[in-house]
């Protein structure tokens, strides 16, 4: 079973929350479930400007994409904003193939994600 330990490095930059994934592989259901729950908790705790940093992520499955879509819906419903950054080229292919790069606000790196957010 996937560990319940924190799966994010969370930093606050001014009024933004930067959540950096710690897992390199978000593939199996158990990991995805824990990652999803911890991600949703950010919104439930009232945070409204969230940046998801993918620097460490090498692999992502379709089930993980589902969690990201639901995360965006939660943030939108709460009146917040969600950005993503630092997506590796091999991972970017997943977002491009699925056309999710149109749905998500994806920035090249954390500095660009923070700019004007």
């Amino acid at each position: 079973m996937a560990s319940q330990a924190t799966r994010f490095d969370i930093q606050t930059v001014e009024d933004c929350t930067v959540a950096c994934f710690l897992d390199s592989r978000i593939l199996d259901e158990a990991t995805i479930q824990v990652v999803g729950d911890q991600m949703y908790r950010l919104v439930d705790s009232g945070l409204l400007k969230i940046i998801l940093d993918f620097s460490n992520v090498e692999h992502l499955s379709s089930a993980a994409l589902g969690k990201l879509i639901n995360m965006k819906k939660k943030v939108d419903a709460a009146g917040g904003k969600l950005r993503m950054c630092s997506i590796r080229p091999e991972l970017k292919k997943i977002f491009d193939v699925t056309k999710l790069s149109k749905l998500f606000d994806i920035q090249k790196n954390q500095a660009k994600a923070l700019k004007g957010f």
Binding site: S61, A63, G66, K67
Partner: peptide
């Protein structure tokens, strides 16, 4: 799921990948 009306559906991308 690449169609605009399906883009925000959380499932159905496994075959595509």
């Amino acid at each position: 799921c690449t169609l605009p009306e399906n883009l925000d559906k959380p499932s159905g991308r496994g075959l595509m990948l």
